[in-house]
């Protein structure tokens, strides 16, 4: 706290939250820089939501401490935290209009009616929902509800905005559109966004920092390219984009020093030189093909551009692993 530059928006130190025998969050250390777009990525049940609820104040840690902009949060109820949440199911108040939903925060803070209604209109304009003030949440589409939830959470000008799988309920096209909008909104407002997702591509495309969760622990934190290119563990390599995990024995066969490696499929070249193998399965993905090739007793996933033509199962191919393509992991 003495050095304001080092102040974290959110800081976890040894935070645990257990439910009976379930270690939902287990000794987590975490620093989220002010203004970051921070993603918590991990499979279902890995403790992401619980972490978010700890920041919001819906849960209290069993051990460890949480600070928000340097202020300790022990015993601070949610309504005293300058943090707002976009809930997974949006949690819009069904008995209120859209306008009243958005104006709820200022209302409970005692802001006069005219002022808070004007403010709610501004926020609705921000999420491109002008003129929807008098509708009920039930009369909105999923994407519109999502925007209302966003406007409602932003009206209090929180220092940290929490989003729990905010795009999970939307269809693919809307989801891609909202990804872009959320990203640009965050840039404009400069608020710290903490964003939970189990979708690695969503995390990679939106966040400027990613924490990968597994079984209540953070297994790696870093910039998207770092996590993607240089996974530190087998779990990260596998979960973030299905990298090839090369076991020590196989590494030797591939001519690498003995060790555990991650080898991204798109880094391997299919061509005239390299190890000989046969195509085992092939999966057409539009712009590319994902092919599993058997090299001796090893199996490697390879990505081939679609224009390279079909790769029938059983056809003989050669794989070339460029120097430096494999990334050595810890374990």
């Amino acid at each position: 706290m003495t050095d304001p530059a080092a102040l974290s928006a959110v800081r976890f130190r040894g935070v645990s939250r257990h439910f009976g025998a379930t270690r939902a969050v287990d000794g987590v250390d975490l620093d989220i820089a002010p203004g970051a777009f921070f993603a918590m990525l991990g499979p279902s049940g890995s403790g992401k939501t619980t972490c978010l609820r700890l920041i919001a104040g819906f849960e209290q840690p069993d051990a460890g401490s949480i600070e928000i902009f340097g202020a300790p949060m022990t015993g601070v109820p949610p309504y005293r935290r300058s943090v707002n949440t976009v809930f997974q199911d949006y949690a819009l108040f069904p008995h209120m209009t859209v306008g009243a939903n958005v104006a709820y925060g200022p209302m409970v803070r005692g802001v006069p009616r005219a002022e808070r209604e004007a403010r709610a209109r501004e926020l609705l304009a921000l999420v491109a929902l002008s003129g929807f003030e008098d509708r009920r949440p039930a009369q909105l589409s999923g994407g519109q509800r999502q925007r209302v939830a966003l406007a409602r959470a932003l009206i209090n000008e929180p220092k940290v905005l929490l989003l729990d799988e905010p795009l999970g309920a939307l269809d693919l096209k809307l989801r891609e559109q909202m990804q872009v909008e959320l990203k640009s909104l965050q840039r404009r407002l400069g608020i710290t966004f903490v964003f939970v997702t189990h979708d690695q591509s969503e995390a990679l495309s939106m966040a400027d920092r990613i924490a990968v969760f597994n079984e209540g622990r953070i297994v790696q934190v870093g910039a998207p390219d770092e996590v993607y290119e240089r996974p530190q563990t087998r779990f990260v390599a596998d979960f973030v984009g299905g990298s090839n995990v090369v076991e020590p024995d196989a590494a030797e066969r591939l001519g690498l020093p003995r060790g555990l490696y991650s080898l991204r499929p798109e880094k391997i070249r299919l061509g005239e030189i390299g190890f000989a193998g046969t195509v085992e399965t092939t999966l057409y993905q539009g712009a590319q093909r994902r092919v599993v090739v058997a090299v001796g007793s090893d199996r490697l996933a390879v990505v081939a551009p679609a224009e390279r033509g079909p790769l029938p199962v059983g056809s003989a191919v050669r794989l070339f692993v460029p120097p430096g393509a494999a990334h050595r992991m810890e374990g």
Partner: peptide, 18 residues
């Protein structure tokens, strides 16, 4: 508005709620 990380507003009910 609430720019503080901790909302310090007070009142008997609010403290009971805490």
């Amino acid at each position: 508005m609430a720019a503080l990380p901790i909302d310090g507003r007070d009142g008997a009910l609010r403290r009971l709620s805490d």
